[in-house]
Simulated scan of single mutants.
Amino acid sequence: MTNFNDNEYASLIGNLLHDTKYLEISNMGKLAGLRKHAEVMVRKNLNIGSNTKIMLGQVRSYSKNLAVNSKMKKMGTELSSRLIEIVNRINPLGIAGTHTQHTEEFSDEEVEGVEDALLDLYALIFISHFLHFKISIYSPPQVLHEFSILPPIIRYKTWSYLFEKDKKNIQVVNKLCLSIIKTFNKDTAYKWLDHNSEEIKAIPYPTNDEITKYIQTGGVEVDTGLYQVSLDFCKYDNMYDLLYDKIKDPRTSVNESGKMYKSFEEAIKHYNAYKGINISNNSEEVVIFHSLMDFVYLGRKSKEEL
């Protein structure tokens, strides 16, 4: 069994995106293409190459497909359960879209539901990555910046899952708050902060030594000994106040409700521009993350090209 090869699937992904997003086709045709795209994303999540047969219906607990079963065990119970739940939202409509028994047109809402589930498969790639390379305030700034050049909904889905896993993780709480602003709006972010106020106020605040380490590892040196950071710990003594002011800050209004970019097609020009910047950190974590970002942009056209 070979591993998933991004280059091998580049053309197929490009064709699927062309047919389901960039052409005006029937909802039935879209669902058939989305199901095929979902199958590719399952292969990516399970790291299964083209020499092994996979069908979405085989993504289940104790699958009879030995390759799927083996990879899902390796993925772990929680993530494999998440994968099964997502596939179950896609497969029934996807199958119906390919069979002649269903003669009526599918609704826009049905298509949108499958499209949303497909985005969950994209988010699952990053959830797996951030669980393996545990996200923290010391995570490489290149990774955090690159991740911000994704549709806000992907980031929201990712951070929401990780928040439920660990509500004391400062970086996860910070990034989830920002993703809520960018996916929805600031009013929603204030409501989320208020709803989770007790847990957020209880998050252990970094010590002076931890703050110094964060500034040196996560900050950008703008002058000798002067660093610019995303989290200005020195001004606060708890995460609730820090996040409240971050929501209020005019700088977080720049992409509120996706003003700058909501979709891959709107974000890709920003990602291509960022890729041209020389990145000195070539650690395993950064290299793997960069490859994931390249993968999710495979076959995408910019809004200007459409």
Rank of each mutant, 00 (worst) to 15 (best):
H102E: 15
L79K: 14
N7V: 04
T103W: 10
P140L: 01
L242V: 02
K175P: 02
H102W: 14
S263H: 03
K301P: 02
V42A: 10
N169D: 13
K30V: 03
Y236W: 09
A32L: 06
T98N: 07
Y240G: 11
K36E: 15
S107R: 10
L178E: 02
L131C: 08
D166M: 05
V220K: 10
V114K: 00
D19L: 14
S283A: 08
C234G: 11
F233Q: 00
Q228K: 14
K269R: 11
Y261M: 06
A96Y: 09
N278Y: 07
L93N: 01
G97L: 02
I288M: 07
V68N: 07
F264W: 08
D245T: 03
I137C: 05
K134W: 04
K303D: 11
R155P: 03
L121C: 03
Q101L: 15
V111K: 00
E112W: 09
L243A: 13
P250H: 07
T207F: 08
P250T: 11
Q228G: 06
S291E: 07
T77Q: 11
R60K: 12
Y205R: 08
L298T: 12
D294E: 08
F163T: 14
L118V: 14
M41F: 07
T52D: 10
S61E: 07
E256M: 05
L46S: 06
W159H: 10
I13N: 00
N255S: 06
L226G: 07
I200W: 00
S291W: 01
G276K: 14
W159L: 11
D187S: 15
Y156T: 04
M1N: 13
N15E: 05
L226H: 13
A267P: 05
I211P: 00
A96V: 03
E265F: 06
A38E: 03
R82N: 15
N282S: 12
S61D: 06
S136A: 09
T158L: 04
L131M: 15
N174R: 08
E221K: 11
